[in-house]
Design a protein around this nucleic acid. Sequence first.
RNA 1: GCGGGCGUAGCUCAGCUGGUAGAGCUCCGGAUUGUGAUUCCGGUGGUCGAGGGUUCAAACCCCUUCGCUCGCCCCA
Length: 427
Amino acid sequence: MIDLQPVKGTRDFFPDEMRLRNWLFEVWRKVSEQAGFEEYDTCVLEHEELYIRKAGDEISKQLYSFEDKAGRRLSLRPEMTPSLARLVLQHTKSLSFPIKWFSMPQCFRYERMTKGRRREHFQWNADIIGQPEMVAEAEILMLLISACESMGLTAKDIRVFINDRRILNAILSQLNVAQELHSAVLVIMDKRDKISAEALGKMLEEVGMSSSQVEQLNEYLSKSDLQELKDSLQDTEGIDELQHLLQLMDTAGYRDYLQFDISIVRGLSYYTGAVFEVNSPEKQHRAICGGGRYDSLLSTYGGETVPAVGFGFGDVVILDVLKELEHFPELPRTLDYTIIPFDSEQVGAALKIAVELRSKGATVDCNFSMKKMKKSLQQANESGAKFAILLFPEEMSQDKVVIRDMQLREQKPINITDLISSVEQVS
RNA sequence: GCGGGCGUAGCUCAGCUGGUAGAGCUCCGGAUUGUGAUUCCGGUGGUCGAGGGUUCAAACCCCUUCGCUCGCCCCA
């Protein structure tokens, strides 16, 4: 017997789970399109070099890579943004910016699994490319919040924790932290709410900050009030921009979802402006969604500098959250009709009726198992059929069938032609 | 890389200080040979993850190994 388990870290989607996945995809697609985003896709296979960046050691360890028969180094995509960058760079000259695109790619990372993280997941991505102003962030945030609301979540359930990399840079510059230490310091600051203050300070000193710099940094980081922080900084660009964004979101009616959080850092060289993560207000989960502005990414692939902002929103964590909050949708299988021939004599008639009903746009299944009527009706019930069409020799001899309303448990004979014409054309 | 938990029927699991296996659901059949919610009866189905050890006797104790899972580390 071969191993029946799915590959470690990957999932099978039985029909029940597939309905749930499709439901989630429909929410993503609908809110995206309603907000004017266009869908795109690329192949799950990419050239490995797309993911090999300067600090690329870690990510290349997590790549599913292999060599094809012609010796090309290929990878399963670990994220969508590089592929998006590739598409945009192909047509930088002809695209009419700003563009608003979304995608729902399956992504792969070879990594150790924990709750909310598998080796494969579907990740809704939405990006606005070519718009440098903060209104792009506003649109992006509104989009992901509206997706959460479509799933039944409110400002009580989720929060967008937001920061701006320019604020962090302004603080570090003001403390005279050397430019080359900034990225290392930012990585450590990312851990701020995971480890103790002592451990944090120790790590910061280890990368080269002085103890007085650490002390002052802590003072800045303890300020949860934007205005207070602004008053203590010389370079206020990041704060001004963030305040502008918060104002825009207030106008849109989404201010309750947003919370300034100086500990949100995300990644390394990627982000240049706003950075954000979505989580429960108490941050009980792995981030549901994360993103920000990455104005310099495209130029790192050798293209022009193109401003960009976007997010990734994975299916695994959001489904965990919805389950926990009991916001899981009820998604039973449904059918309009199940046709049940009494014996093999009616099989041909069953097929013919099925074809005609389907041509009207109805969903129609046939039960050709020729089991007892009891069993067939049971199966019709389980399949969610609204009506069972029973084909008995007696009625068929008069060109009639028995139509049974499964919910009312009532039935009557009906002319086949009347049955067909009673169905409203859907298409 | 470190640490914990779990592997028993198709599924979810019970099985006490060791005495060679059980329930619910599913499936199949019957009460009802043309009728489905909550009826009732019966039946199929297990190399107790694998291998070794201790014992008169192991699902249970010990060792090894594989698989799954959760947390930490790492990372987004």
